[in-house]
Design a protein around this nucleic acid. Structure first.
Lengths: 253, 253
DNA sequence: CGTGCACGTTGCAGGTTGTGCAACGCTCAT
DNA sequence: ATGAGCGTTGCACAACCTGCAACGTGCACG
């Protein structure tokens, strides 16, 4: 829409491929060297490109700083909420959103049928970390040493006969979850409650949050709940796209 | 230098602070809404900004992709070499450059007085990981669980009486190195050789490489070698600035 | 159910601003 | 010493960006 800006921005992916000098940039843009110079100057003033010793141009530190700042100011809950509400609207069961932080997994949002309960920002309730579907999803994505360290330090309370008994079983379960890209909790926390969950990923592919749908046995059986898995996964994927800033898809899940 | 591009780029830091709608962007830029719209459109076409459900604008995924691609295409060795050569020119001793990769520390460049030896790209010689100054610097920056895991798996060969004896001593040494921001190897690998080293950091502050200066006892004592530490650190810092794309400082020292 | 407001969007005329050209200085290799 | 290659600068032209005003839409209000 704006020729000048369009040209200037076209320089960025060009430089991402590696350093280039003025002539190369001008050629690839199809403009005169002096034009390329002015564009590069402007980009340089904003710190987006950096001039190295040999005078060639490269992407600059500001780019990284911007990306980092943007990530820090992203609020998963704010972005996810409409999707969670829409899913809840459709299937009626309770929907949870959780994040991992410093060895703990915390609920940061929850939508119940008819009773939307807003929980406070980052300070939610700690999750039953050894059994909850969201906890498995979040821990499964940790780098191997940290995952191992966390698993070793946990207690494994026998909430029910189906609770995760120990670290070895937990790590095995995490491997499965990591593999298949979704998780369940079938009566592992409370005998009569089942959950299915899916991960929400950031632009770099790392899991930034996890969501789940929970329902008591008396309403739907575990098998029935599992039929909702595709919807849960699609919702999680939609949130991931929105969160990571990928081109939108109207599909809310 | 270019007003249009200048305005367009000014939008980025603005959006990094959080989502904003058209009016806010126009106001903060001090331009008409229609102007802001066109700029945002152009940024959007390039994927640098993303439009979320509520129509507000945010930084987009392309920004992260660019930053990542740029980092991947950065070659520490290429950037560092002139600095290493300059330092070597001044002080005469051997200068090393090393990186950490998959549990190993590898030399990727080396400049000897009068005998510049170019080593092959990424495939260099593994370092005596338990004693070398560069190894300490690189391992000291690893996340705690990985650092611990690596230290536990290593052998601790008694090259000399001053070699690091075991994992506990090594981890303690790494803590010190991490604290002080530089490292030494005083006769830990070969009785008569001393080294001082400093870390090279990327835009995010993580250590991406380490450099060191080595000299035999017969040429300079350990105390004399330590007087070179400020020069080594300044060189490492200069490389860090260049590598991370920060505004340049003419000081190569 | 109508009405007004707020917001995003569009076409247009005017002139600011970006463009390409040509010439200059510099470094480096011949 | 000399020329090639590169980055850089001033200038005249007109292309492109700008702000305005008007339109469409969704939403909250009476």
């Amino acid at each position: 829409m704006s020729q000048t800006v369009d040209r200037a921005l076209s320089i960025l992916p060009l430089l991402a491929r590696g350093p280039a000098d003025l002539g190369q940039v001008a050629d690839e843009l199809g403009v005169h060297k002096s034009t390329a110079l002015r564009l590069l100057r402007t980009l340089h003033e904003h710190g987006l490109v950096h001039r190295q010793q040999d005078q060639r141009y490269r992407l600059g530190a500001r780019l990284f700083a911007l990306a980092q700042e943007a990530v820090e100011n992203l609020d998963v809950r704010e972005i996810a909420h409409p999707y969670l509400a829409a899913l809840n609207e459709r299937i009626g069961h309770t929907v949870h959103l959780a994040v991992y932080e410093e060895g703990e997994v915390l609920y940061i949002d929850k939508v119940e049928s008819r009773y939307p309960v807003r929980m406070y920002s980052r300070i939610g309730k700690p999750v039953a970390i050894t059994v909850a579907a969201v906890a498995k999803l979040l821990l499964a994505d940790l780098p191997e040493p940290e995952r191992r360290a966390v698993a070793a330090k946990l207690d494994y309370p026998p909430y029910t006969p189906r609770s995760t008994p120990n670290a070895a079983a937990f790590l095995k379960e995490l491997a499965t979850v990591r593999e298949q890209g979704w998780a369940t909790d079938l009566g592992g926390h409370e005998e009569s409650i089942n959950c299915v969950g899916a991960p929400i990923r950031g632009a770099d592919g790392r899991v930034v949050a996890a969501m789940s749908v929970s329902a008591p046995n008396v309403v739907v059986t575990a098998e029935e709940l599992l039929t909702l898995l595709p919807q849960v996964r699609r919702t999680a994927d939609a949130i991931s796209r929105e969160y990571s800033g990928t081109a939108p898809t109207k599909d809310n899940g």
